[in-house]
Design a protein around this nucleic acid. Structure first.
Lengths: 108, 108
DNA sequence: TTGGACCTTCACATCAGTGTGAAGGCAAAT
DNA sequence: ATTTGCCTTCACACTGATGTGAAGGTCCAA
């Protein structure tokens, strides 16, 4: 799995002299993030594209100057798709908890 | 795709005399729901299991009496997994919009 | 009544993400 | 020095969701 993420340019663990990969603490966090997004329906291709922008505005990995209008559009489009997923999941979660509450009112 | 959903017991379109499938208006809504959930990382197996409980508490498809503790546990577990996805997606959406706002403050 | 446009089933192919196992290198312990 | 264990690469297999295409049935319109 880690090799696959690396092949997909989602990860870039350093190498020791002997050729062994080196995963730092940041890689662990990154892998958790990747797995969460994959499990939420994003593809590695999309993740690769938005990954440089996912660490919050305080840590800007890509110079604002080189953010083309096209890239910005891609980003906004992806935000929309993510929002659509959130809406879908929220709706269905609500239905589920409502059902549970209706069927077993005592256990809140 | 529709045949696959049917094979997975997510859909049960009626048949005309000639054997043709019949998709009503409800099927359209159901397919949208299924596609949304699939796109959000649920599997057909999970969807099949929770589908009878997804239509809100006002339309109860399964008698409360036959909701075993085990089933209830499954449902609650699935709610948790869905919530985890929502959290993950929300986090990353926030990071994305924060980045966009930081890089292009004029376009709100 | 013969096309054409749809439907059926069935069998495969595809793609993404993941797992597995062989063949061999490196390193620390026995 | 040899064993043990983890690492490397490479190749292959698997699963889930989807697409495709053949072989044939049904219906409607020219």
């Amino acid at each position: 799995m880690l090799r696959y993420y690396e092949e997909q340019s989602l990860l870039d663990p350093g190498r020791s002299d002997n050729g062994y990969r080196w995963y730092g603490e940041a890689a662990v966090v990154r892998v958790q993030q990747i797995r969460g997004l994959l499990d939420s329906g994003l593809t590695t291709e999309i993740i690769r594209r938005i990954l440089p922008f996912l660490d919050g505005p305080e840590v800007i990995h890509v110079a604002p100057a080189c953010v083309t209008a096209e890239l910005e559009g891609l980003l906004r489009g992806e935000v929309e798709r993510i929002q659509a997923r959130i809406d879908c999941l929220s709706r269905n979660r609500d239905a589920l908890v409502a059902y549970l509450a209706a069927v077993r009112p005592e256990s809140l």
